[in-house]
């Protein structure tokens, strides 16, 4: 298993947000976390990254126990994070943002990886542009490029298509498919679009009130399930 959560409860301060979550994400798969707003999807991502106050239970990354690992060690262990809102450092240039990713890789020279340039030609042409000046879609590409620069085993994508024009959504979807199928990266994503989730994923889990209520292979995500848990 690339990522495993066993009975994980995750806290902000003293408040448990996620409760008794069990998840297993096989290596090379694409795992989609679904749920309405405010059910704990982002908290699940932050929990994997070690950005909540504390957790109980057991969390392992690539077979290694990571329950009490600090955030930066998890990044080095191979988790590439694309947060909600993208988390681009606006004062940095495109190059410096990608360089930030290399601090979690083995590249002591901290250069821009060729894969990032190949996947995102716009970024390749604007390496010295200030990242704060990029559009939403471009920032999302930069966030993916930065996560790839960490030389990850698994990518966490929190709402990768949120607030992005439809034509760019398709582009990002194709990029993710390529990373998953050709390069063999494990993907964990949260998604509002059921259609995107069905096209990309192998497995899914539905969250409700901080608990996993449904999980299984993507074929088991029936319209009836969508109707019951995801329709507002």
């Amino acid at each position: 298993m690339m990522l495993e959560l066993q009975d994980v409860t995750s806290f902000y301060g003293k408040t448990p947000i996620l409760q008794n979550v069990d998840l297993s994400v096989p290596e090379g798969s694409c795992f989609c976390v679904l749920g309405k707003n405010g059910v704990g999807k982002t908290t699940l991502m932050r929990t994997i990254m070690g950005l909540t106050t504390r957790i109980t239970g057991k969390l392992s990354i690539a077979g290694q126990d990571a329950t009490s690992q600090p955030t930066y060690e998890r990044a080095i262990a191979g988790v590439g994070y694309i947060p909600q809102g993208r988390g681009i450092l606006g004062k940095f240039t495109v190059r410096e943002n990608i360089q930030l990713g290399t601090f979690a890789s083995n590249d002591a020279a901290h250069g821009v990886p060729p894969l990032c340039l190949e996947l995102f030609p716009y970024l390749a042409e604007n390496l010295d542009k200030r990242a704060g000046h990029l559009s939403g879609g471009q920032q999302q590409q930069l966030a993916i490029a930065r996560a790839l620069a960490t030389d990850p085993k698994v990518l966490l994508l929190d709402e990768p298509t949120e607030g992005i024009q439809p034509n760019i959504v398709k582009e990002i979807e194709l990029t993710l498919r390529r990373l998953n199928k050709e390069i063999g990266l494990t993907l964990i994503l949260t998604e509002q679009h059921i259609k995107v989730a069905r096209e990309l994923s192998d497995y899914f889990a539905v969250l409700e009130n901080g608990r996993v209520v449904e999980t299984g292979p993507i074929a088991a995500l029936t319209d009836e399930l969508v109707e019951r848990h995801l329709t507002i």
Binding site: M49, L51, P70, T71, Y72, A75, I76, Y81, P83, G87, L89, G90, K91, F92, L100, G101, F103, A104, S105, R146, T150
Partner: peptide
Amino acid sequence: QNKEMAASFGINA
């Protein structure tokens, strides 16, 4: 700029 993001990319803040 952003302590959480820095940590998420391998920097020991």
